[in-house]
């Protein structure tokens, strides 16, 4: 085949793949609207939290070049922490009601989870990634990926060893009567958690855009030498990035505790889904993580609704594989160069 012919074929495949993927998303959205508000509401709640996990993943990849496989485990750490903070608080509230504490207890739990997640991320960077960075930068992406694989195994089994395999969940955070939205009854927890996710995304975005530290994080992701030249302490930024990314995942875990009880492998599903999001919108592309979160949550919800439970891995996985084949840089392009070796 001549050079130009190959080129044309690839262009055609790319457009065909692009069309397939865009069409599936459109169909998904139309089907979503068609199938009633319940699906939409569900999608929006899980999508918001999923976006947080994906945001952390994209941040860590974009700045540190680490494809996190252990990101779900920070989700798990978050849900576990929230469980151990919230349960005693709830018990205390049962015996001595206090409306102020009742309103803030979930926030305390989520805040605690965020802090623990951030500290866990800090420790991982200090004990693991900075050690590898000191010793060898060769083949960094692959080696750091394998390190996170090991980390994931350790954290999952540490949970099993220390806290057991049973589900550690709660029934509700705030409780209260469900609100009616477009004919569907939505629990107050879902609404508040969604609001929380949006607030976190907003704060994160403002931080990255307008603060000096946020800009420094972006600078490091774009040119490490340049960042060093203007006086940025790279190691400090890397530490901060890891802590931020892991905290985002932990917030999601804590926020969704009333839907997903904590157990050793609870992080696997958010991990897969967050990876789907990140690949869908382009690795390292934080800007579109929110959109991607909703799209993937919708695809998943629709798969469960129309094709059946259990297929929700198959269809998204295949769809993402299609994206990877035809448009490896993601639907919305990407800042990461050199996806293709050719």
């Amino acid at each position: 085949m001549t050079e130009s012919k190959t080129g044309t074929v690839i262009v055609w495949m790319k457009s065909a793949g692009g069309i397939t993927v865009t069409l599936s998303i459109l169909i998904a959205i139309i089907a979503g609207i068609d199938s009633g508000p319940y699906i939409i509401v569900n999608t929006i709640v899980t999508g918001g939290m999923l976006a947080l996990v994906a945001l952390g993943l994209a941040l860590i990849f974009g700045v540190m070049n680490i494809p996190m496989f252990a990101h779900g485990e920070f989700f798990m750490i978050g849900s576990l922490t929230a469980y151990y903070i919230f349960t005693p608080l709830a018990e205390y509230l049962n015996t001595s009601p206090n409306s102020l504490l009742a309103a803030t207890a979930p926030l305390i739990a989520i805040l605690g989870a965020m802090i623990v997640g951030a500290v866990a991320g800090l420790l991982c960077e200090l004990l693991i990634f900075s050690q590898l960075r000191k010793r060898s930068r060769e083949n960094w992406v692959m080696n750091s990926f394998l390190l996170t694989v090991g980390l994931s195994v350790v954290l999952i089994n540490a949970h099993q060893l220390l806290f057991g395999t049973e589900f550690k969940g709660i029934v509700r955070y705030w409780g209260g009567r469900p609100t009616e939205i477009m004919g569907a009854f939505v629990s107050r927890d879902r609404i508040l958690v969604f609001v929380l996710a949006m607030v976190v995304v907003g704060v994160f975005w403002l931080f990255m855009k307008y603060t000096s530290t946020g800009r420094a994080i972006r600078a490091v992701s774009q040119d490490q030498t340049g960042a060093l030249m203007v006086g940025i302490n790279i190691n400090g930024i890397l530490l901060l990035t890891m802590a931020l990314g892991c905290a985002l995942s932990a917030i999601a875990g804590a926020g969704l505790l009333f839907l997903y009880p904590s157990y050793p492998a609870v992080g696997l599903e958010p991990l897969y889904l967050a990876w789907f999001v990140v690949i869908l919108v382009g690795l390292g592309n934080t800007a579109f993580a929110l959109v991607g979160g909703f799209i993937v949550a919708l695809i998943k919800a629709l798969t469960v609704e129309y094709i059946g439970a259990g297929w929700d891995f198959v269809i998204p996985s295949l769809l993402i594989t299609v994206v990877l084949v035809f448009k490896p840089s993601g639907l919305f392009g990407s800042e990461v160069r050199g996806v293709l070796d050719l």
Partner: peptide
Amino acid sequence: YISEDMNLFTNMTVQENLYMGAYV
């Protein structure tokens, strides 16, 4: 230090790049 290959932050605006220069 103004390096040979400049090491600019390509996905930032001109003004953001300049502000980064005054990071310290």
